[in-house]
């Protein structure tokens, strides 16, 4: 047993932090795209749009029902064999695509529940003054649903940041991939992965702090 090599960890810190931006970029892009897709899916589900509703249910069922790692391999290694124009797809794009589709399926269901949870009489009130479905969704229902869905969506975002580590299996050198390479060179696996774990942890803690502030702000209108 050796003592924790703190000097090595301190030296490794700036190297690993250099890969953090890529991790956050993949999660950020995935989150924005997943939110947009999830909102569309949720509206299709809430309005029970004929045809589209069944498609949305199939989509959600598949992407919730299969492991993210399987989906990533399917997009990166599998799809280019069928759709040859995808041969050039790189690991980063495949990861963002996988995260988007996978997490949008989960997020769609939370958003749908939040939309359905908005008091029906407010919808009627909006209609009664002549607002269209689109206007009442945008201005009355979605803002309130956002408040309800925010804690869950933030949890998915946190999950997504951690899930970017799977990109390493597609040959992307992000935080996890970089740690693996460094550790393989130094044989100090414990120090390297402990440091990686701490970096993920700190990022998530910062986000949790932001989440609490955001929720406080969103709840302002509902204080008695």
């Amino acid at each position: 047993m050796h003592v924790l090599d703190l000097d090595y960890m301190l030296g490794l810190l700036p190297i690993l932090l250099g890969y953090l931006p890529l991790t956050l970029e993949m999660a950020g892009a995935g989150m924005v795209a997943a939110l947009v897709l999830a909102c569309l899916l949720a509206v299709v589900r809430v309005q029970r749009m004929p045809g589209l509703n069944a498609l949305a249910m199939l989509f959600i069922s598949f992407f919730r029902g299969t492991p993210l790692l399987v989906q990533l391999f399917l997009f990166y290694y599998g799809l280019p064999q069928i759709l040859t124009f995808l041969v050039a797809i790189n690991g980063i794009t495949a990861t963002i695509l996988g995260l988007t589709l996978h997490f949008s399926a989960y997020m769609a269901e939370s958003i749908r529940a939040a939309i359905v949870g908005v008091d029906r009489s407010q919808t009627e009130a909006a209609l009664s003054i002549g607002m269209t479905q689109g206007q009442l969704m945008r201005r009355i229902v979605l803002p309130q649903a956002t408040r309800v869905a925010t804690p869950t969506l933030m949890n998915y975002f946190i999950d997504m940041i951690k899930a970017t580590s799977l990109a390493f299996t597609l040959g992307v050198t992000e935080l996890m991939g970089a740690t693996q390479k460094e550790a393989a060179g130094s044989f100090l696996y414990f120090e390297a992965f402990l440091l990686a774990a701490i970096i993920y942890w700190v990022v998530v803690e910062i986000l949790s702090w932001l989440q609490r502030r955001l929720e406080k702000r969103l709840n302002r209108a509902y204080q008695r």
């Binding site: 008091d119 009489s121 407010q122 009627e124 009130a125 909006a126 209609l127 009664s128 003054i129 002549g130 607002m131 206007q135 201005r139 009355i140 803002p143 309130q144 408040r147 209108a221 509902y222």
Partner: peptide, 30 residues
């Protein structure tokens, strides 16, 4: 609906909007 206005038994105010914005919402949007 623009020619008829409705007052609900349970008020049905927009919970995410202030009293002023509840009143102004239709004037702005509709």
């Amino acid at each position: 609906r623009r020619r008829t206005a409705f007052v609900f038994q349970n008020y049905a105010l927009f919970a995410n909007k202030t009293a002023l914005d509840n009143i102004c919402e239709g004037m702005i949007v509709v």
